[in-house]
Simulated scan of single mutants.
Amino acid sequence: MFLTADIQEAGYSEDSIILKDIRFAISRGELVGLIGPNGAGKSTTIKAILGILNYMKGEIEAREYSYIPERPIFYERITLWEHIDFLLSTLETDKKEFYERANGLLKTFQLSHVIHHFPESFSKGMQQKVMLILALLKKPDVYIIDEPFIGLDPRAVKELLQMLHKEKENGAGILMSTHVLDTAEKICDRFILISNGKLVSSGTMDDIRKDSGLLNGSLFDCFDVLTTGENNDG
């Protein structure tokens, strides 16, 4: 397994528990959707995996990963190209191949013209593209992606989906948190459904349908049935 999470309970303090009994694993070459509405606990689950919560009881095992946050984070007063150069300095990789890959990604995401500008001044969509480029350049075993479609234009979404498919074919494991259920249903191999900080169902689309009792239901309809009565304030 590339990523194994056994979260018995977690939160921002021992007196403020948000997650309970969430367990799952990500294998080589699969895209797993972490699904739930806003406030369900998806981002908190990712923070537990990253080890940045104040309180977490359980165990996380992960191979080398790239994390793409919902809200992009950059070093101040450092240009896009300087961010790329800094990333190279942290990796053991062929310099020429790295720069060729970087230039290719910059062209794909239409950012070649701003390589000497500061990402902090970019639009949200452009910033999201930069985070994607940096993550893809690292070529990790596992991608952990939090709400990747927010701020991306339709062309960028298409490019992202193509890149994720390629990375999956190359053997990477991908955990993608999203509330865009129609897209998730089309691209994910398995699903982890969370509501109110609890795991309500997991598995393939057939497993989710079986749990919900909707044998021909969409992911949206199945999730609606499985979470009826839940209070999503986590």
Rank of each mutant, 00 (worst) to 15 (best):
I35H: 08
I194W: 00
K96Y: 04
W81K: 14
T178K: 01
R101P: 01
C188F: 06
V157K: 13
T79Q: 09
K166F: 08
T204M: 06
I174C: 08
G104A: 09
I60S: 02
K166G: 00
I145L: 09
G197Y: 03
T90I: 05
Q128S: 14
I145H: 08
L34W: 04
S201W: 00
L152S: 03
K107Y: 06
G151E: 02
V225L: 00
E30Y: 06
I84S: 10
G197I: 05
H113T: 13
E64N: 13
S43L: 02
G151A: 09
L111S: 11
I52S: 09
E9M: 08
H116R: 10
D15F: 13
R209H: 10
S66Q: 11
L161C: 02
K166A: 10
G11S: 13
L34V: 06
S201G: 13
G171T: 08
E159V: 11
Q127I: 06
A135T: 11
I18T: 11
P119A: 07
M126H: 05
L132T: 12
D94A: 04
F2W: 13
P148A: 02
Y99T: 04
N216L: 12
F122A: 01
P69M: 11
D153L: 07
E30T: 08
D6R: 11
A10H: 01
H83D: 09
F86S: 04
I35W: 04
D85G: 01
V200K: 11
K210C: 00
I68F: 12
R63M: 12
R190C: 00
E70T: 12
Y55K: 05
S123T: 12
R63A: 14
G51M: 09
N103E: 15
D85I: 01
G51P: 05
P37W: 00
P140A: 09
L226Y: 09
I35Y: 10
Y65M: 06
K139G: 01
D15Y: 13
E169N: 15
E97A: 15
N232Q: 10
L199N: 08
K124M: 15
F220G: 00
F98H: 03
K210M: 02
G33L: 05
F86T: 14
G36T: 12
G173W: 04
I7H: 02
D189M: 04
E100D: 15
I133N: 00
N103T: 03
I46H: 08
L175Y: 06
L137I: 07
H83C: 12
A135M: 12
E14L: 03
N231D: 10
T4W: 00
F118V: 14
T183M: 08
I68M: 07
R28K: 15
P37E: 14
G29K: 14
Y67D: 10
Y12S: 05
F122C: 05
A156T: 08
D233L: 04
I60W: 06
G11V: 07
M131C: 15
S112F: 00
